[in-house]
Amino acid sequence: MVIKFPYQGSDFTACGDLVKQHTPEFLRQLFYQMLRIRRIEEAVENKYHQDQMKTPIHLVIGQEAASVGACSALKKSDVLYCGHRTHGAYLAKGGDLKGMLSEFFCRLNGCAGSRGGSMHLMDKSVGMAGSSAIVAGAVPIATGAALSIQMKGEEHVSCVFLGDAATEEGAVWESLNFAALKKLPIVYFCENNFFSVCTPLEERQPDGVEIYKKAAAFGLHSVQVDGSNVLAVRQAVAAAVARARSGEGPSFVEAQVYRWRGHGGAGDDSDSGYRDPAEVAHWQKHCPVDGYADLLLGEKRLSVQQREVMEQQINDEINAAFQHAESSPNPTEEDLYTHAYCN
């Protein structure tokens, strides 16, 4: 049994004070958002083999606390960009589920009109501004959004989700340098899940050089956080957002997370040999959704009955959304030629 990347957090053992900072409704809402993402991802995964969602999915199962914790610190008017693993960011930012599933089913009413697929989910009505399927591609774009916010004197904040492998791309450091230089209102939220497809961090970055410290060396306020703890993530990102909004410049938050599934597609591919299935099992013992539920149950912020109601509500929403997507119209040949240029 080889666990190269052990969970380094402390679960929810020291979260009593954090719990007290929030209303029960808010605490439950965080749980609801994570549970909803988990169930949506499971439903997508279960139907993926039917080959009706002809789009390369990148499931976020195991990383829900990062998506929800970070987005809970953003306002609807703040803009969010992300990489190819879009589902969590999109849903946590408030993106429309029907638009997402219609996009998966390649329907005309998908959130990108079937032009983008699962790697390009967006919903501008809630500030989910876009994504790039080129690793690190959205990082400079989000930085440009922050420049626009600053030049127009707006109150918004820009945020971008990037992975550990994105920090191997030069454009990330070019962006961080510029953001620090101009004190831009942006939060770089790095979900370090230790793998780039099947290549572990140790084969890509030197041992002992932590990502968040590199960002600090570029002049950013930078912290590392347990990405499986939604309250810890929320706290770190809220502090970064507050800095950005008050003109103190950019921040970097490294959230250590673990994806329970393969890089792309349905199911776990650990048995292919690039990681020990025991490592996945190890992280599953620190489940961001169940662990948080236990905390709320223990702190009497959530009841078993409330949880059951949530499950039912989510299940109904998912069924309706799938029905909507599967019964939506396909694009026609004419649709191919629209928006070649903007007028």
Binding site: A129, V139, P140, I141, G144, A146, G170, N177
Partner: peptide, 18 residues
Amino acid sequence: PLSEEGLTGICTGAAMHG
């Protein structure tokens, strides 16, 4: 700064935001 890719992306993002 001498960051052609980064700055082009930053300009793209700025253009996307008005």
